[in-house]
């Protein structure tokens, strides 16, 4: 564990908590893509299966349980409790166009052709594009509530911090994983446009308005 990875995990945890609080406090999931949340739930379920088979550390196990539980709670709030506030019309990204290529790629490019490894690889590829429906929704509505942009900033920062973690681990432990690094770079690049808008607008107190 290093400071970059810890900061990344905490940023990830913060993002999930911000989202849950936003939906719970405003009793609305307007502006949030349910499809992205479904993809994140799939990411956690396919990646954290080893929760029951390998024990790495208490921290590792607790965080996995928290992520799976929080994503389940978010889906429940979005699709059951506050279903009426879910923006079906704008949340129209075809997630099969993300799922199928990730499955195919995971079968072709992986470290080991075993079920656990394929699922982990699929989860890594899927996570890199899981935010697309959310970014698509923001671009369609043309704006995002400031709490939603804080959520996106924390979520985008998490993988950016992981990139620093991988640089550190390569230098300090000569440990690297090209699949995770490649997907992490793609994932972080997808946020760059948003990061620019967040820093130039939201931090100045303006609303996040995408140029029409």
């Amino acid at each position: 564990m290093n400071i970059f990875r810890l900061a990344g995990d905490l940023s990830h945890l913060l993002a999930i908590i911000i989202l849950l609080l936003k939906i719970w406090k405003t009793r609305s999931c307007a502006g949030i893509s349910g499809k992205s949340q479904v993809l994140f739930a799939i990411v956690y379920l396919t990646r954290y299966l080893d929760l029951f088979t390998t024990y790495i550390s208490l921290y590792n196990s607790i965080m996995k349980i928290v992520f799976i539980a929080a994503s389940g709670a978010t889906l429940y709030l979005m699709y059951v409790k506050f279903k009426a506030t879910y923006d079906h019309n704008h949340d129209s990204f075809r997630i099969e166009f993300l799922l199928i290529p990730c499955v195919i790629l995971a079968l072709i490019i992986n470290h080991d052709f075993t079920v656990m490894e394929i699922l982990w690889t699929f989860s890594i590829y899927l996570e890199s594009v899981a935010i697309l429906p959310q970014l698509f929704l923001v671009s369609k509505t043309g704006e995002a509530e400031s709490i939603t942009s804080h959520y996106l900033f924390a979520l985008g920062s998490y993988r950016a911090l992981y990139l620093l973690n991988w640089i550190y681990r390569y230098m300090a432990e000569s440990h690297y994983d090209l699949i995770a690094i490649f997907a992490g770079v793609v994932q972080t690049i997808l946020y760059c446009d948003f990061f620019y808008l967040y820093i130039t607008k939201v931090l100045k107190g303006k609303k996040l308005q995408l140029p029409a």
Binding site: R5, D9, H12, D50, T54, I56, S57, N60, M63, K64, F67, H111, D112, W120, Y162, N165, S174, H175, Y176, D177, L178, I179, A180
Partner: peptide, 10 residues
């Protein structure tokens, strides 16, 4: 052959 990821990351 790159190092096998020890999957200690979240």
């Amino acid at each position: 052959q790159q190092t096998k990821t020890d999957k200690d990351e979240l």
